[in-house]
Nucleic acid binder design. Structure first.
Lengths: 198, 198
DNA sequence: AAAATACCAGAGCAGTCACTCTATTAAAAG
DNA sequence: CTTTTAATAGAGTGACTGCTCTGGTATTTT
C-alpha cells in the first residue's frame, strides 16, 4: 500500500523533543518555555512538534512518566538484596548522581510551578508514590532489623527521606558552592543521622 | 489646595491587593494568576491595581520584600539572648507557625517558578541572605560553645538548616497527613540530630 | 461652594502564545 | 515508476494577558 511508521525513528524523534523540552523547561520554567523555543532547541518546526505531542502539557507529562518508570525500574533492580540500609544509601547516591545534571534542579522547579494542573498533579503523585513505596519497603526492613529508629513509622521516615532530598534539590539552584557531588557526603551523613536509632 | 493622600488608607489598599495576590499566586502560580483574577479576588478594578503597583511583578516583589523585612526583624529581636541553640529552635518553631497558613507552600512554589526573572532572583537572594546571616550567627555561637558539631562550618550548617526547612515546606503541599504542626516535633528533632556533635 | 486632585473602574490595545492548516518532501508498498 | 501516506515545515489564527487610557467619583483644602 504505502509508507509505514518506523517505530525506531518515531521513538528517536520523540526523545529528541523531550530532551529539548527538558532543557527549555529547566532554563525558562514551564510557561516561560514557549513551544517555539522548544522547537528551535530541538531544531524542528512547530508542525513536527505537534505531530508528536498533541499539546505542550503532554511533553511535560511524557518527561514525568519517563522519570517515574526509571525510578520503578531502579527499585525493581534492588529486589533480592540483603542489607536494606545499604539499599537506602545507594538510593541517595543514585539521586546525587542524577542531580549532577544541572538541568534537573531547574526542571523540578518548573514542574512545581504547574502542580496546580490536575494532570500534572496526578503524574507527580504517581511519581511520589513510586518513590515512597520503594523507600518505605526498605526502611521497614531496616526497621525490623533494628538498623533504624523505631519511634516513627516506616512511612513517616520514608517521607522524611524524600523531604531531605527535596530540600537538597532546591538548594542546588541557589548558592554556587552547593553542588550535588560536593555536598553528597553531607547528604549521606544527614540521612544516617535521620534514621539512626536512639 | 486639594485632596492629600491618606497614608493609612493607601497602606490598607496596598495590603488588600498584596493579600489577594498571595492567595492567587498560591493557588494558580505566578503566571497562572492573571491580574484580572487578582483584581476579582481583591474586589477592585484593574485601574486600581495598576494605580498601586506599576506591574504585576511589583506585587510579587512587594510580598517578598515584606517577608524579608519580617525575617530581619525577628532575628533583630533575638539580640542579647543567651542560649544560641534555643534561638535556633525558636526559629524552627516560628517557621512552623508561619507555615500553618496553607497558602504559603503554594506561594513558595510560585516564587520558585519565576526565579529566572532577575529581579525576583535578586529579591530571593536577599531574603535567603538575611536568613542565612541570622542563622549562621547563632549556629556559630552554638558551635563555639560546643553545643553543635565542629566538623562542618557554621555557614554550611546554616545552609543545611534552611535546606531541611525548604524540604519541609515542599512536603506540606503534597500528602494530606503531613501538616506543619503535625510534623513540627519531628522537624525540631531532625534539626537537633543534624546539629548534634559527635 | 468650588477647585484641585487622589482614587477607582473597566473598555480597549498591543503583543504573545499554543495550536491549526496547507503545502511539500520522503519513503515504503505495489 | 506510481501510488499512498508518514513526516516535516512554517505561515496564519484565535484567544488571552498585562497594561494603558479615558472618564467619572470622592474627599480634602481654600
Amino acid at each position: 500500500m504505502a509508507r509505514t511508521v518506523d517505530p525506531e525513528r518515531y521513538a528517536a524523534r520523540r526523545l529528541q523533543i523531550i530532551d529539548a523540552a527538558v532543557t527549555r523547561f529547566a532554563a525558562d520554567g514551564y510557561v516561560g518555555a514557549t513551544t517555539a523555543s522548544i522547537c528551535r532547541t530541538a531544531g524542528i518546526g512547530s508542525g513536527t512538534f505537534f505531530h508528536y505531542f498533541p499539546t505542550k502539557a503532554d511533553v511535560l507529562l511524557g518527561v514525568l512518566a519517563e522519570g517515574t518508570e526509571e525510578t520503578r525500574a531502579w527499585f525493581a533492580a534492588q529486589d533480592g538484596r540483603d542489607d536494606p540500609l545499604a539499599v537506602l544509601r545507594d538510593w541517595v547516591r543514585r539521586s546525587v548522581d542524577e542531580l549532577a545534571d544541572p538541568r534537573l534542579a531547574g526542571f523540578v522547579r518548573a514542574v512545581g510551578a504547574v502542580m496546580t494542573e490536575p494532570a500534572v498533579a496526578a503524574a507527580l503523585a504517581r511519581d511520589e508514590q513510586v518513590q515512597q513505596d520503594g523507600l518505605e519497603r526498605w526502611v521497614d526492613r531496616a526497621r525490623s532489623g533494628g538498623q533504624v529508629r523505631q519511634d516513627r513509622s516506616a512511612a513517616e521516615l520514608a517521607a522524611w527521606l524524600a523531604l531531605v532530598l527535596d530540600g537538597f534539590v532546591a538548594r542546588l539552584a541557589g548558592d554556587d558552592w552547593f553542588t550535588a557531588h560536593g555536598q553528597g557526603d553531607m547528604l549521606l551523613e544527614t540521612v544516617d543521622r535521620l534514621l539512626a536509632p536512639r
